[in-house]
């Protein structure tokens, strides 16, 4: 059976039909003579996009696992509470600020603790902290595409409570991405309920990904669950060791009397979920990580 494949207007002006009965090589040759199609680059000749530059996350284990955080890409870190997301975030910010890069933290739930950041050796001079305020009366008018889902009648009360903060986050991140010159922009959605975080439209994430492309900025999103979906170039999952309380909590027994206990740190695990970047196949998908409490010296 023969079927009509392509019908184009050749240079002569007469319509011409290409049928699948022709040999592929001959068909391609004939197609290449058509002026309209000759300007189209075949997929086989598309330019290979250069691999993005990567920077250190400030943690050797994470760098060994991922090869570093890619510039000009969106990296997402997710995990439940006490899984080490914020510790990783502070380590990344500390590394970037020590490289003398200007960084911005969009703190959706106003959860940033400056004392912890100081212990992590964050250079505050290079860190811009944006504290979203749900009670701010100066919320800008909503953009049609961004908040379409927020106005859904089905939204429950808890997720609605976060709407102003999420709107502020989207607006602020847009402005920060446009201002250019920042080495790291981190969006902290760590305390935002899953249903509220997932109300951020995918178009916003696509816009962020497009805006950060070809810039030296690392866009980092921290949350309870992945919400940027396919827009994230690198996806890491954090988790604590949940089998028992003892492995997670190191209890110092020597210097302190028996009844007293001390939180020394967390034993964590990082899982490499997905990456669009080239990576050595022999590398492991998981890494163990230990954090230390600021008061342990």
């Amino acid at each position: 059976m023969s079927s009509l494949l392509v019908c184009a207007q050749p240079a002569t002006g007469r319509p011409e039909a290409f049928r699948t009965t022709e040999k592929p090589a001959l068909l391609l040759k004939r197609l290449s003579t058509v002026p309209h199609l000759s300007r189209v680059t075949p997929a086989s000749r598309l330019e290979v996009r250069p691999a993005p530059e990567t920077v250190s996350s400030g943690i050797a284990e994470i760098d060994a696992l991922t090869g570093g955080l890619p510039r000009g890409c969106l990296t997402e870190i997710y995990g439940p509470a006490s899984s080490g997301r914020t510790s990783l975030l502070l380590a990344t910010i500390a590394a970037a600020t020590q490289r003398q890069e200007a960084c911005a933290l969009v703190d959706v739930s106003d959860a940033f603790d400056p004392q912890s950041a100081a212990a992590a050796k964050v250079d505050f001079k290079n860190l811009l902290w944006v504290r979203c305020d749900p009670e701010s009366k100066k919320n800008p008018p909503r953009r049609r595409g961004d908040t379409k889902k927020f106005s859904s009648a089905q939204a429950n009360r808890s997720s609605r409570a976060w709407e102003p903060c999420l709107e502020q986050t989207l607006k602020t991140t847009d402005l920060l991405l446009q201002s250019s010159g920042l080495g790291l922009i981190a969006i902290d959605l760590g305390d935002i309920p899953l249903e509220a975080a997932r109300r951020i439209p995918l178009t916003s994430w696509f816009r962020f990904r497009r805006a950060v492309e070809n810039t030296p900025t690392v866009l980092l999103v921290v949350g309870q669950a992945p919400c940027a979906r396919t827009c994230a170039s690198l996806l890491l999952r954090m988790e604590g060791q949940h089998s028992a309380i003892s492995p997670q909590l190191s209890v110092r027994k020597r210097k302190i009397p028996e009844p007293a206990q001390l939180l020394e740190g967390l034993n964590l695990q990082v899982e490499f979920v997905r990456s669009r970047l080239e990576r050595k196949p022999a590398q492991s998908d998981r890494a163990a990580l230990e954090t230390r409490a600021a008061w342990t010296g």
Binding site: W129, S179, G181
Partner: peptide, 30 residues
């Protein structure tokens, strides 16, 4: 390392202040 242009940064900070409110944007001093 890259750094934002001061003029552009000032505008961005002023705009962000307009969104999240005054005193909610800046760097920390302990």
């Amino acid at each position: 390392p890259p750094s934002p242009e001061p003029e552009k940064l000032e505008l961005t900070l002023a705009r962000i202040s307009g969104i999240v409110g005054e005193g909610k944007v800046g760097s920390v001093e302990l």
